[in-house]
Amino acid sequence: NVPNTPCVFLGCLDPEKFKDFKLVKRTQLSHNVAKFKFALPTPTSVLGLPIGQHISCRGKDSLNEDVVKPYTPTTLDSDVGYFELVIKMYPQGRMSQHFQVMCEGDYLAVKGPK
């Protein structure tokens, strides 16, 4: 990376450690599907996820235990400054429980590409 321009060329992801991304918009699409828009560190940052790859997202289930699950963003690296996930939330899904309670301003731990 170039100093003072984090994530611009190489992407914001780290395959070894989780990084936190802020939820800036949550849009309910149906009774159990929502679109989550997460901000990248700068308006010109790219996620850095090669096509066909996915990210690992970490959250807490209803018992406050860590859960990690892979997801594929619905955005591309041509969408700079943010990435989006469209999530179908299942009643018994452990990671679904995390997304169900996420509010704008919350953070999601992400690592990848995977």
Rank of each mutant, 00 (worst) to 15 (best):
N1D: 05
N1A: 09
P6I: 10
C7I: 01
C7S: 07
C7R: 07
C7W: 02
C12H: 00
L13C: 02
L13G: 00
E16V: 00
F18I: 04
K19W: 08
D20I: 00
K22V: 14
L23V: 09
V24I: 14
R26T: 08
Q28D: 07
S30A: 05
S30I: 03
N32S: 05
K35R: 15
K35H: 11
F36T: 10
K37G: 02
F38V: 05
L40Y: 08
T44W: 01
T44H: 01
G48I: 05
L49H: 11
I51P: 03
I51Q: 06
S56H: 06
C57R: 01
G59Y: 06
K60Y: 12
D61R: 02
D61N: 15
S62G: 08
S62Q: 11
L63H: 12
V67Y: 15
V68G: 09
K69H: 14
K69T: 11
P70D: 09
P70S: 15
P70M: 13
T72M: 06
P73A: 03
T75Q: 03
D77R: 13
Y82E: 10
E84S: 12
L85K: 04
K88I: 09
M89Q: 15
M89C: 14
P91H: 06
P91A: 12
R94K: 09
H98T: 11
F99P: 06
F99S: 09
F99A: 11
Q100D: 08
V101L: 15
V101M: 13
M102C: 15
M102K: 14
C103Q: 15
G105H: 06
D106R: 09
Y107E: 04
K111E: 01
K111N: 03
G112Y: 01
G112H: 04
P113L: 09
K114L: 07
